[in-house]
Amino acid sequence: MNRAIFIALLSCFFSLSAVAAVSDQGIMTPDFNDRASLQRGLKIYSNYCSGCHQLSYMRYKEISIDLGIPNALFEENLLPKYARIGDQITAAMTPADAKRWFGAKAPDLTLEAKRRSPNWIYHYLQSFYQDKSRPLGVNNLLLKNVAMPNVLEHLQGQRLLQCKQGETAFKAGHGCRTVAGEIKGRISEQDFKQIAYDTANFLAYTADPSRFERESLGLKVLLFVALFSVFAYLLKKEFWRDVR
């Protein structure tokens, strides 16, 4: 019985990992085994996010170990001048500056993928559009009156809001989406989707770094408990044979 459950569970995991990272409905599933994607995600975080957003519960060292980046290489290329490899990841912008410049603190991103979801981040990065009424000239379909500038705009290109007749954004069940504007981005739409995916995947990792260790240990523990259950069952059966 237990064994059957275990086997069913195992096959479930394998089939899950075989599913494409982004489904037809556009729902992304993080893939921690895709190390290249996680490393690209780190690159995007370092280049575009880390100026304002901290990953304060994460240490540089842990990332270098988990993502398979040699320590020396990491220190030389990825570590900010002010930080040491064992430090927690802080941003250059202070909260006070953030308040002054953007009117809001830039949230810590360590747990963002748990607080919302990796899928939310994936779509959020693609949902910016031009909005003249906003101080930064952009708005976001997933986060009304967003205080963040569209830092990836030069890659994605300008996006415009397109709504069905009579509809406006941010109403429940609104029929709005964003479409390509006149200024084209530096990379193709497909490549940009990959960038959004890698970032979401990387943040899913920072929210749950124990997952590498957890799942491999978990399989061993389950195997042991399943085996133990078999012996416990045989023991019980042996003792209860004479009970009528």
């Binding site: 569970l9 389950l222 023991l235």
Partner: peptide
Amino acid sequence: LAIAVFLFLFCVVIFF
């Protein structure tokens, strides 16, 4: 036996 079966389910949740 009950503890063993329970632990199996418990560990599935904890680890996965």
